[in-house]
Design a protein around this nucleic acid. Sequence first.
RNA 1: GCCCACAUAGCUCAGUAGGUAGAGCACGCCCUUGGUAAGGGCGGGGUCAUCAGUUCGAAUCUGAUUGUGGGCUCCA
Length: 578
Amino acid sequence: MAEKNEKLEMMRHSASHVMAEAVQQLFPDTKFAIGPAIENGFYYDFDLPRPLTPDDLAQIENKMNEIIAADKPFIRKEVTKAEAKGIFAGQPYKLELLEEIPESTVTVYQQGTFTDLCRGPHVASSKEIKVFKLLNAAGAYWRGDEHRPMLQRIYGIAFETRKALADHLQMLEEAARYDHRKLGKELDLFSIHEEAGPGLVYWHPKGSAIRRVIEDFWKDEHVKRGYDLVYTPHIAKIDLWKTSGHWEFYREFLYSPMDIEGQQYILKPMNCNGHIIIYKTKTRSYRDLPFRMAELGTVYRFERSGVLHGLSRVRGFTQDDAHIFCRFDQLEDEVTGVLDLALFMIKTFGFKNYQVMLSTRPDKAAGSEEVWQEATDTLRHALARAGVEYKVDPGEGVFYGPKIDIKFVGILGKAWQGPTIQVDFNLPQRFDVNYIGEDGKEHQVVMVHRTVLGSMERFLATLLENYAGAFPVWLSPVQVKVIPVADRHLDYARKLEKELKADNVRVEVDDRSERINLKIRQAQLEKVPYMLVVGDKEIADSTVAIRLRSGKQLEAQPFTTFKSELLSAIASRVKDIE
RNA sequence: GCCCACAUAGCUCAGUAGGUAGAGCACGCCCUUGGUAAGGGCGGGGUCAUCAGUUCGAAUCUGAUUGUGGGCUCCA
């Protein structure tokens, strides 16, 4: 398998060289940057005299096919740096790369008319490139630096067989049907409006119904686990954010201050300061710790226009936030508790798997090396206790402390940013957040910032794409659709509706004078888990005919039986009626 | 923010030699009361994202603005 992947990667990398040759022939003035193999394909960055059009891509593809058909060998040469500078005269990006190579000799690969600075390896000859397709052209900064020139990147994919290519293209099409922006519109869950502002989400009744279920569950679970729920205001005086350091470090994410009676206020970008204020309203004893304060806190951050994306990157969002104030010796237990909660959430919401990253001390960090080391070790111990496998992300911690990030892995294998657990020594110091120890003296608390879902917005996106909009029954905005066969069955339908509503079931009656085929179709499109078809037979026997959204029809059963099974399925949160 | 593309009815979309807008779904009314994925008829609905410009005339050409998409960068 590994060998096969290497072969594929070699082919993809070679395809990128062939693409460069094609571009060179079509645009002789091109300056070449880099062109690696990536997952499923390859790209190459070019500095071109004009923007590329879809027609250009087709032409480049044709040229590539010619080169492949001509079966040009890939020739590897070792040359001195001085020779290489001659070869790449007039190619500033290649020359810049050459400067950074410490060795005195470098390798170049040549196929046809194109020679590239490249470590290799490559296929022996262009004919070994089996099937490829150019997907799109996009802008990309030279070396990923936004202060350097914007280059044009062409992305392509390449496979061993036509079938593999076709499968991949089909998979891309399939993925588009799971897109939360599309599903959100189709299922009438939320909207975002040009006239109201980008990145600001309007939750429709059905989206709000899902959110309420999530929030109620979240609150109950937190209270069970020893959290106190709080509410804090959306704006606060700017000085608070100066004290916390946000004004200094994160100003680019903050909205401009507003003037209120001569005082400057800003919208909160985080909830921590509010929780610290509550903590500090009285002297806390070591006996009061840990103090776990939780809030579904709505925050506003200025995100640059180009990064906004549906529900997953927005400018106003509600974090499922909490801050744990504890003693250092309690830190491990607290982190363990948060990990347990996070894993419980992952399981309850039906994610197949998860990935865990531990981020360590960055270059620019507050606090001493020793404290960092100790805190990082504490996180390691907690991870070990939870029996969780993780990877280390060196230097990716927040400036105020190390963190654990968990990604949800959905049904399709896509990973989503989920829970985050961050240790913080900085804010307690800035705000002088203390407790009185057994020794009668003041000691600084350790703060843990954490979310277990992320934000309501991003989490809904995650759920939507994970379930393709077919939520498990406990989360479905409409759990039951009652479909009377004819108008004379409406009274019975209403009676069922009333009885289900009495137990907080989210139920709708399709009371239109339409054929049931139409009503079934629309309930299917709405992905309602249970459709109850009721007509003369059902009324006579006090039963319901049940159709599942899978298309499966269950035996007609007494309404009371259905109802109790439904209620237990909802309460279990895990299993639907099958 | 940067590169490229796109913006037509509530939704999905058609409308290229520039001559003042169409379909399906949805919505309203009428007929139909039909047993598991679209019954039929009629009707209302659009200053073609916004603002300028070119032109006798702009959904269509040009520019700017706003927004969206694909990337890049960023994501405490």
